[in-house]
Design a binder for these strands. Structure first.
Length: 779
DNA sequence: GAGTTTGAAACT
DNA sequence: CAGTTTCAAACTC
């Protein structure tokens, strides 16, 4: 598979690079030692990267004979994993044998495939010594085994009892879930197979969706620095549910190639079945028991959003039509609502999951990395990088053969959901695309706005999405990807033909994420909503995640900038204009070329133009502060003209403002804050009151809604019917006549009438209550 | 809603 | 880098 050129890699954001950094150039696949050898104590030399915990790359070398395609790539950074990589060998064994039979407790990850070459030497090694077992059980168990059983890495894992959940899709769309149980430390039964038999490795259950046959052998990218993140790439051979899992080549760095026959989706669970760890997604970020695979410094936690296995029982297919160029790709997402099935080989669902989401959670949920590859070629991987406003989409082309296969799989899975679409003709060489596409705030759980441009994503429903990319080749622009806003199309990687880097607009991703998350939520039993929201909530420009999430993007009103300058908030936020009031807007895919140029121009002027302005301040200072500081002169920094005030932060030492009143002790600021708080409270109260009133009215209507009787409109619970009103009036008139008859004063007459009215009301109410009671009894 | 004010972005 | 202009949002009436 073709991979991004080194140049592009170098230009990628750090987060991305970290993920990719694992490139295992050192060990060509062919030279990869046999799995058995890996099981030995020989520790792989893993390049350590900075503070980030060493990353383990579970990338088996590609067997010379294997023709494979890049599949699922899991990237994770974790101390535990790092420890593993550094000190121990990771053998990934995919095996159909039942999980219980698998050895557990060691630091080795084994991928079962007899005879399959294993692991890159650079780090963790993937070996495949599993006796192929029952096909029905498409479990891949990755056992982490210390070479000598005393590996520090193993110890680390045991000590922390971390949990690793990795879910992803193979390139062919097969979901792969790696779950590292928090029961790391718990010794399990020894594994009889492989060199790991002596060890007591913790079990990794790897269940993946069936893979497709890959006809093409793609080059593996060796370029790029060593990754600090864990990259697990694996292809499973599920052919006919009986085939052996094949761990193939891996990719150092980026894309893994692998050839495997198409099979039902499999879920790879490390350590535990998904069903046993339902909380993983939702609570992963906050759970200390989990191993954090994070590009950031989160040594103790690794949270990887899992892509739930397809479940035949309740498949939720989310077809995604992607038009790249003039071609349309159909991507279908299938979610399973029955997590228990995840671990079983029967996961079976014939469907292929095109979308892969890998969320690498940092500490406290604020750091994530999400990769959502689309099953169809090119695979689209969404990467949510912690600390970045943008979401990155990684597009990996697949072979045409795969494309057809994917389409078929989708059809098989859920024909009704499949959208007629042309398979995209891709170059045989796979191209990885990594570009920021969406500001974090856009990844919120809100209904995406409909795209106004035909060239943009069209979402006809929650289950259908269409990405349309410009047909014309885009300029060979390779802006600084680190700060690249959405919508950019990058120059094609060498050998990738026309393929380029396409940046999807925020809406695209929002929609895509929604569907993906829904899929995740419905399957595997995780509390998807929470996890999704957690993932989606990244700090944006100083706004708390909740704020960013709840605040809808304001439409711009640009008239002269064509929305291609930072004046435009949409553009500045890396979004396409959508439902805006702008005039002559170029901030859309219709003008992708111009947009790219504008982006490049902005980046030329300011390399960090698209980075959040609100970031962490110096130590000891406020947690959040404006990266550049404001320059207010007249507003006293107490109006929204001031970017600091607007972000609800106080001015800092780097501000150049004049007459600043936006500081902690400022009485004006306090007053404003109080007023603002009071106003907010009022609004909340009003909202609550309205809600309550509405609820009460609704409830009242519900309770008093009369059932129409057959007799002409009489309603059992109606207090005042026509007859009752007439009778009441008669009573009142009778009182009036009585007063008149006895020449009573008017005041007395009025009193008599009112009293009678009161009597009538009481009788009406009493009758109504009785009728209601009777009805409730009879009905 | 029109006009004004404001400060960031863009330009020189 | 500083000064000026442009621009769109925030604000006022």
């Amino acid at each position: 598979m073709d991979v991004v050129s080194p140049e592009l890699n170098s230009s990628l954001p750090d987060e991305i690079m970290d993920t990719e950094a694992m490139a295992m150039e050192e060990d060509p696949p062919a030279e990869t030692p046999a799995p058995s050898s890996h099981s030995a104590a020989e520790p792989a030399q893993v390049p350590m990267e900075t503070e980030v915990p060493e990353i383990v790359s579970l990338c088996p070398a590609t067997a010379p004979t294997q023709k494979t395609e890049a599949l699922t790539t899991l990237t994770a950074t974790d101390s535990a994993l790092c420890g593993v990589s550094a000190g121990t060998q990771l053998v990934v064994t995919s095996s159909s044998s039942s999980g219980p039979k698998m050895a557990t407790g060691t630091a080795a990850v084994t991928a079962a495939q007899p005879g399959s070459p294993v692991v890159g030497q650079s780090v963790a090694k993937l070996s495949a010594p599993f006796a192929p077992t029952s096909p029905a059980n498409h479990q891949l168990i990755i056992n982490k085994v210390a070479a000598d059983g005393k590996s520090p890495a193993a110890a680390l894992l045991k000590q922390e009892g971390q949990k690793l959940l990795v879910t992803g899709l193979s390139k062919t769309g097969q979901p792969i879930v790696l779950a590292l149980p928090n029961t790391w430390s718990k010794p399990a039964t020894s594994q009889g197979a492989g060199a790991d038999a002596k060890t007591q490795p913790t079990q990794f259950k790897v269940v993946s969706a069936g893979t497709k046959p890959i006809t093409k052998k793609t080059p593996v990218s060796t370029a790029g620095p060593m990754i600090t993140k864990l990259i697990i790439t694996k292809a499973l051979n599920n052919k006919g549910l009986t085939s052996q899992a094949t761990v193939t080549p891996v990719v150092t760095g980026r894309v893994l190639a692998q050839s495997t026959p198409v099979t039902p989706p499999r879920t790879i669970t490390i350590g535990e079945t998904i069903s046993t760890t339902p909380q993983s997604l939702s609570s992963s970020a906050s759970s200390n028991s989990k191993v954090a695979i994070s590009p950031l410094k989160s040594p103790s936690k690794v949270t990887v959003a899992a892509q739930p296995p397809n479940s035949p029982q309740k498949p939720m297919a989310v077809p995604l039509n992607v038009a790249l160029g003039q071609q349309i790709l159909t991507v279908q997402q299938t979610a399973s609502t029955s997590p228990a099935k995840a671990g079983s080989s029967q996961s079976t669902a014939q469907t292929v999951k095109p979308v892969q989401t890998v969320a690498v959670g940092g500490v406290n949920t604020s750091q994530f990395k999400t990769i959502i590859p689309l099953a169809t070629p090119p695979n689209v991987q969404q990467i949510q990088v912690p600390g970045s406003r943008f979401h990155y989409v990684r597009l990996v082309t697949a072979t045409t053969g795969n494309t057809a296969q994917t389409a078929n799989a989708c059809t098989t899975t859920n024909p009704t959901t499949i959208q007629p679409a042309k398979p995209m003709v891709m170059n045989t060489a796979a191209v990885r695309m990594s570009v920021p596409i969406v500001p974090a705030q856009t990844v919120k759980q809100v209904v995406p706005k409909p795209m106004t441009s035909a060239a943009q994503v069209v979402s006809s429903s929650q289950t259908q999405q269409r990405l349309i990319m410009p047909a014309a080749p885009l300029p060979q622009i390779q802006p600084n990807l680190t700060n690249l806003p959405p919508g950019t199309v990058l120059a094609p990687a060498p050998g990738s033909g026309n393929m380029g880097y396409a940046v999807l607009p925020a809406q695209y991703v929002t929609q895509l994420q929604q569907s993906t998350f829904v899929t995740l939520a419905s399957s595997s039993g995780f509390s998807a909503p929470s996890s999704i929201q957690t993932q989606a909530r990244l700090p944006l420009n100083g706004l708390s995640p909740s704020e960013a999430t709840s605040r809808p993007r304001k439409p711009c009103n640009c008239t002269k900038s064509q929305c291609l300058k930072l004046y435009c908030d949409c553009f500045a936020n890396g979004e396409f204009c959508n439902n805006c009031n702008c005039v002559n807007c170029f901030n859309n895919l219709d003008h992708e070329s111009d947009r790219l140029k504008a982006i490049k121009a902005c980046l030329d002027r300011n390399p960090v133009a698209f980075k959040p302005k609100i970031g962490k301040g110096k130590e000891g200072e406020s947690e959040r502060r404006h990266s550049k500081g404001c320059n207010c002169k007249k507003s006293g920094c107490l109006k929204n003209y001031c970017e600091c005030y607007e972000a609800k932060i106080m001015c800092s030492s780097i501000c150049k403002c004049v007459g600043c009143k936006n500081f902690e002790e400022s009485p004006e600021r306090k007053t404003l804050m109080h007023l603002a708080d009071a106003a907010e409270v009022r609004v909340q109260q009003q909202t609550a009151a309205k809600t309550k009133l509405s609820s009460q009215i609704s409830d009242l209507l519900t309770r008093t809604t009369p059932a129409i009787s057959s007799g002409g409109g009489k309603l059992p619970y109606t207090f005042v019917t026509k007859e009752v009103a007439e009778a009441t009036c008669d009573c009142l008139l009778e009182q009036a006549r009585k007063a008149e008859r006895y020449n009573q004063p008017q005041a007395v007459a009025e009193r008599l009438i009112l009293e009678e009215f009161g009597h009538c009301l009481r009788r009406i109410i009493s009758s109504a209550a009785k009728a209601k009671t009777d009805c409730s009894i009879n009905c």
